[in-house]
Amino acid sequence: MTNDSIKSETEVAPRDPSAVGTIPWAIKGELILNCNCTVFCPCVVSLGKHPPTEGYCQAWAGVRIDEGHYGDADLSGLNVGLVLEIPGLMARGNWKAAAYIDERASDAAYEGLIDVFSGKARGTTGLFKVLVSEFLGAERAPVLFETEGKTRRLIVGKQIHGEVVPVGGADSDQDIVVTNTEYWMGPDITVATATKGRVRAFGRVWDFDGRSAEICQIDWKGPR
C-alpha cells in the first residue's frame, strides 16, 4: 500500500463516540519493546506478579502494522510508538502511557489507533483501560520502524531512538524464544537486548542501552 492510499482513507466517515468499544478491529504485525530491566523482563513469564528488576518499569515500544483495520479505516502499513511508565508490579496498574501515531494515518485511522492503544477499543489491548491511570496523550509524528537483518529500529522524531537485537544463543541461526506464554502481547517472545534505547518525551529522559528488550509477532483484535 502506498502512502497516498493511506492518506486517502479520509473519506471514511467520522467515528461515532458512542460506538467506541463496539467497533471491530484487528492488527497483525510486529512489536518491539525496550525497558529498564537489567535482564530479560520477568513480566513475560510472571504475568506481572513479579516486579521489574529495578522495582519499577520504564519502557518504549514500537508497533509495525502489516495488516489491520479499525472499522472501515485501513491501518495497514502504519507504525506506532509508545512510552510506558509503571510504578511497581505491572498487575497493580497506575500505568502512565503515551502514543505517537504515524503521521501518514488518515483521521479515522488516527482516532482508531488512539482507541486501540488507550484500551477503549477493548479486545486484546482492553487491559490498558484498566491498568493505565493516566494517558499522557497522543501525537502525530514521523514513526519509522525498520528491519535490517535481525536488527529492529524505531525512530520517532527526536523523541524515541531505539534499536534492539535478539540475544545470541548456542546456534547463531536460531533466536532464543520464550514460547507458549500467556503474555498479553503474544505467546512467543524473542529474548532481545537494546543496542540503543533513548527516550526524550513527555518530560522523560531515559537511556536504556544494553537493557532488556523483546520482539513479538502480534495478532490482536477486538472488541472481544
Rank of each mutant, 00 (worst) to 15 (best):
M185A: 14
E134H: 07
C43R: 02
G77S: 06
N36I: 00
C37L: 05
E146N: 11
C43W: 08
W184Q: 12
D207E: 12
I32M: 13
R152N: 10
I65M: 09
G157R: 00
L154M: 07
K49Q: 13
V45L: 03
D173V: 05
P187V: 12
D209G: 00
I155A: 04
G77H: 01
F128H: 12
G81C: 05
S76Q: 06
T22E: 12
W220V: 01
G137W: 09
V167H: 07
N3Y: 05
S8K: 10
E67K: 13
V80H: 01
I215Y: 06
V132R: 01
A108G: 11
T124K: 07
Y70T: 06
M1H: 12
T125K: 04
G157L: 06
G169L: 02
P142H: 13
K96M: 09
A121K: 02
V20H: 08
S18R: 14
N94S: 15
T53C: 13
V83R: 04
R224K: 09
S46E: 05
V20S: 02
G168L: 10
L154K: 00
I160Q: 03
I189Y: 07
N79D: 07
S133A: 15
V44A: 03
R198D: 14
I65S: 06
Q58V: 10
A201M: 02
Y183N: 13
F128C: 13
V83P: 02
T2R: 14
F202P: 00
C35L: 07
N180F: 00
D175F: 04
W220F: 09
G186D: 05
L31S: 12
E134M: 04
C41H: 08
I218L: 09
T147P: 00
N94R: 15
I176L: 14
A105I: 02
L131N: 07
A192M: 10
D207K: 13
A141Y: 03
F40I: 09
R153E: 08
E163A: 12
A97N: 06
D16T: 12
E11D: 10
I27Q: 02
T53K: 12
L78I: 05
A13N: 12
G88E: 06
G71L: 00
F117K: 07
T195E: 13
A108M: 11
N3L: 02
K96C: 04
N36Q: 10
G168C: 00
G149C: 09
A61P: 06
R204G: 00
Y70V: 06
T190D: 09
A192R: 05
F208C: 07
V12E: 10
L127N: 06
E146P: 00
G123Y: 01
I176P: 04
K158D: 15
P142G: 08
V199H: 04
T10V: 11
L47R: 02
D188Y: 05
T147L: 09
C57S: 11
Y183G: 00
N94D: 13
D115Q: 14
K120Q: 13
V178D: 10
A26L: 00
C35K: 04
V116K: 03
W60A: 08
R153I: 13
G55K: 08
I101H: 03
H69V: 03
S5T: 15
I32R: 01
L47A: 04
A121D: 01
E139D: 12
T2L: 11
Q58Y: 09
G112E: 07
I176R: 11
V132Y: 06
V132I: 14
A170E: 14
I176M: 12
N36D: 15
